[in-house]
Computed example of a mutant assay.
Amino acid sequence: MILVLTSPDDTHADRVCDLLDQADAPWFRFDPAAFPHSAQLTVTTGATGLVQRLLVTRDHSLDLAQVTALWYRRPQAPVVEVPGIDPSHNAALAEECQHLVRDLWETLACLMVPASYWVIQRAQHKISQLQLATALGFELPPTMVTNDPSALIAFSRAHNGQIISKPCMGLALQRTGYYQYTRPVTRRDLAAAETIHASPMIFQKLVPKAVEVRITVVGDQVFAVAIHSQVSHHTRYDWRRYDHDHTPLTPHTLPPALAAQCVALVARMGLTYGAIDMILTPNGRYIFLEINPNGQYLWVESRTGVPISAAIARLLQTGTHRTVANLVVSEGGIACLLE
């Protein structure tokens, strides 16, 4: 059984579940936001360890011991709305529920795509990404992460004022309705450099672009697409400032050695899936920027035809149930399976 954790409106999951149906592969889709108001979880332990992990919804009952693969797509947090109690109490109850479901998924000894919650969270750390990418031989732009105004000014001078800025994470900013895209650091920014004191930022040397490359790794398969971001002024510094009508996407072939590096990066991070962003310079150099361990991909597939959904569906079908006794934890805290 393949367990898909995501929201009801996730079109990525819709597509993959359709493909699983075509392959007669059993799957169950669950959004933790349904817990506890319309779902129940029961975990029983005994002398030999976990005896039962049962998920019951309004129309289905799933013994989690039967799960062979878990797709941790876009699950929402549990929602608790008990009438007549203080909102802070509802929030505390929701936090308890969130703690339980995250703990429960960690006990599943099965294939996880892209990984368990905590591995995904760790994989989003930008400095750690850069450190690992360097160790694996990727070329990176000169980078500084700081909230020190004087360090920023010195970094700008060292690169003749040709630097860009981007947030360290950005998710907290998104929750406020504000998001800062990658953009050049201007003289006005440097004059107001004191403002970074409360907001550390990532600063990098501005790298000339022929195209940007989105590389999606699924298991040991690599799908690369060139984003012609320099065609549109709107996307020149950050393709996420979408201008679909004026930003062509085309399938792209990576050098075999670079494709192997991408697979190695995803695997070393404890992931089975990852979306890597790189720059291809006018003189043919590939520059690593970052990896999103659970990045969206359907926008790439729908515009280029690269079969990422099919690759994910096939990967999920390779999962087999393993006992907890076969699980070990590596030095980096990543759960590994003993063959």
Score class of each variant (00 low, 15 high):
residue 213 V to Q: 03
residue 213 V to H: 02
residue 213 V to M: 03
residue 215 I to D: 01
residue 217 V to S: 00
residue 220 D to Q: 10
residue 222 V to Q: 02
residue 225 V to Q: 00
residue 225 V to N: 00
residue 227 I to L: 09
residue 228 H to E: 13
residue 228 H to Q: 13
residue 230 Q to L: 07
residue 230 Q to V: 09
residue 232 S to A: 13
residue 233 H to Q: 10
residue 238 D to Y: 04
residue 239 W to H: 10
residue 245 D to W: 07
residue 245 D to L: 11
residue 246 H to W: 06
residue 250 T to Y: 06
residue 250 T to E: 09
residue 250 T to P: 07
residue 251 P to H: 00
residue 251 P to W: 02
residue 251 P to A: 02
residue 252 H to Y: 06
residue 253 T to N: 03
residue 254 L to D: 01
residue 256 P to N: 07
residue 256 P to Y: 01
residue 258 L to E: 04
residue 260 A to G: 05
residue 260 A to R: 03
residue 264 A to Q: 14
residue 266 V to L: 08
residue 267 A to H: 10
residue 268 R to W: 10
residue 268 R to V: 12
residue 269 M to D: 09
residue 271 L to Q: 05
residue 273 Y to P: 03
residue 273 Y to D: 01
residue 273 Y to K: 03
residue 274 G to C: 08
residue 276 I to A: 07
residue 277 D to G: 14
residue 278 M to T: 15
residue 279 I to S: 09
residue 283 N to W: 14
residue 283 N to V: 15
residue 285 R to A: 15
residue 286 Y to Q: 06
residue 286 Y to C: 07
residue 291 I to G: 07
residue 292 N to F: 11
residue 292 N to M: 11
residue 295 G to E: 14
residue 295 G to H: 13
residue 296 Q to L: 15
residue 296 Q to I: 15
residue 299 W to R: 08
residue 299 W to L: 11
residue 300 V to N: 11
residue 300 V to E: 08
residue 302 S to A: 14
residue 304 T to D: 08
residue 306 V to N: 02
residue 309 S to V: 05
residue 311 A to E: 04
residue 311 A to L: 05
residue 313 A to S: 09
residue 314 R to K: 11
residue 316 L to Y: 00
residue 317 Q to C: 12
residue 318 T to K: 03
residue 318 T to V: 04
residue 319 G to Q: 04
residue 319 G to E: 02
residue 321 H to T: 08
